[in-house]
Design a protein around this nucleic acid. Structure first.
Lengths: 250, 250
DNA sequence: TTCTACTTAATGGTACTACCAAAGGAACCG
DNA sequence: CGGTTCCTTTGGTAGTACCATTAAGTAGAA
């Protein structure tokens, strides 16, 4: 790929970080495109006039940021990757975990986002997409009404519904935020599907919401959303404990 | 700190990641509290029965995630840190940059969040906080009306206002999201203060918003917010180019 | 005593070397 | 043509030595 003098040796500060920043800049400015392969560690070691450890740490940092992908073996090496939300989600989830965030606060945030998404979806999504959403909720209904409901599949379907609805807002930012929150805090949601009573009501609620959206009835749709979150709150409040790790050592 | 057998040697997969995960878990489960110091690299090397490079990579990963802080010299080492939003913001900003996200989409998202925040702030914040907000907007007015407006200070004050308002929602999640977005996309906002006309209008708008909030008038407050974002959109659309890095090499 | 200057030890940062393990490709054999 | 073996590339691990920085201790001077 003839990237002879793409990088320059460094002198200042922690070399590893500096190198990581140089490569990161090259990626963000698209001087290196996703899918491209960076020189091997040993080549970079020569280009940057430094030890291999430094190069490894730099590459490791890029991997952590989700900018590159590392493969072993011949034709292995460091490959520039298209980032995806997972990294942001992970970072967010980590942060929220360390902050002892209350489920109520997350729920409130999510509800407010959901309301906006719903309005936007009604205004912008096509009739086909809306019908598709209804169809997906029907799948969910079938799942919960089965003899032996499969928690895994149901949770997955719930996730699909959330994402699909978010996408109908025609603004990727909403979809990403929704996905990030979902990934970080799925556990609370899925609690809804643990007990039969909640499971049924939740699925029905989803169906109603989708139908209201399909009929372009924002007020009713918002009302269903409110019901959904009310249900979530009562559910979480009801089975309060779920504490496994609250016994720290003094 | 007598953490003799806190960790165990590993066998499988990439040792570095495994070690990083063990330590991360220990931090998240609060077996190691913020402020505490991990053993030195050489001690860990012995505890984990591995090479120092592996330990370094593990610690590096934790640092990247924002979980620890590294200090050189005697009494240096790896210290567990209280995470802050900066890490999430950075991750988010990186993602958005690589996705060529349109400013309009961000603006739409921020506006919707701002609306919710405003409603919550009016409902929940005390009169004192509301007056404080008004006072801050007056500071901003003073700044923009000076002979030689200081871009830096003005931008900072704008940031302070956003954060303070978000905090008044009494839900930290809103404040964090706002801060993350701010940090990632300050550039567009600050464009508002580049031209005198925009600068003045924006500051006035802030003042009005704060006053409406102080008077518990949600409708008027929302209207001011709408005006603010309308201004932002026209400003960004007006001075469209700002492209410095759009010439990629084929 | 009290302050300064020097020494010392601990610790992360860098460099280099050697070897292991995986993975793909090329040559070889059936 | 298809499978097998070997070889080369490349990341992963181990170990050693040395440098740079920093805090703490120590001796000496005021």
């Amino acid at each position: 790929m003839s990237q002879e003098n793409l990088f320059t040796p460094v002198q200042i500060g922690r070399r590893g970080e500096d190198i990581a920043l140089q490569i990161e800049a090259a990626i963000l400015e698209e001087r290196i495109l996703p899918g491209a392969r960076l020189p091997s560690e040993r080549e970079l070691q020569i280009q940057f006039q430094t030890g291999r450890g430094v190069i490894r740490e730099a590459i490791r940092a890029l991997k952590q940021k989700g900018l590159v992908d590392i493969r072993k073996g011949a034709m292995g090496g460091t490959y520039v990757k298209q980032m995806d939300v997972a990294n942001v989600s992970e970072s967010l989830a980590l942060f929220l975990k360390q902050q002892h965030i209350e489920p109520d606060h997350i729920a409130e945030f999510r509800e407010s986002i959901d309301r906006v998404i719903t309005i936007l979806a009604i205004a912008r999504a096509g009739a086909a997409a809306k019908e598709e959403l209804v169809a997906e909720t029907e799948k969910l209904m079938e799942m919960v009404n089965q003899e032996e409901p499969d928690q895994e599949s149901i949770a997955g379907q719930d996730r699909i519904l959330n994402i699909r609805l978010a996408q109908m807002s025609n603004n990727p930012v909403f979809a990403w935020v929704m996905e990030a929150l979902q990934q970080g805090f799925s556990s609370h949601d899925y609690a809804l599907y643990d007990e039969t009573a909640y499971r049924l009501k939740t699925a029905e609620n989803w169906q109603k919401t989708a139908q209201h959206i399909a009929r372009n009835d924002p007020m009713q749709a918002l009302s269903s959303i409110a019901a959904h979150y009310a249900l979530l709150r009562s559910c979480v409040a009801g089975q309060k404990p779920q504490s496994e790790e609250n016994n720290r050592l003094a």
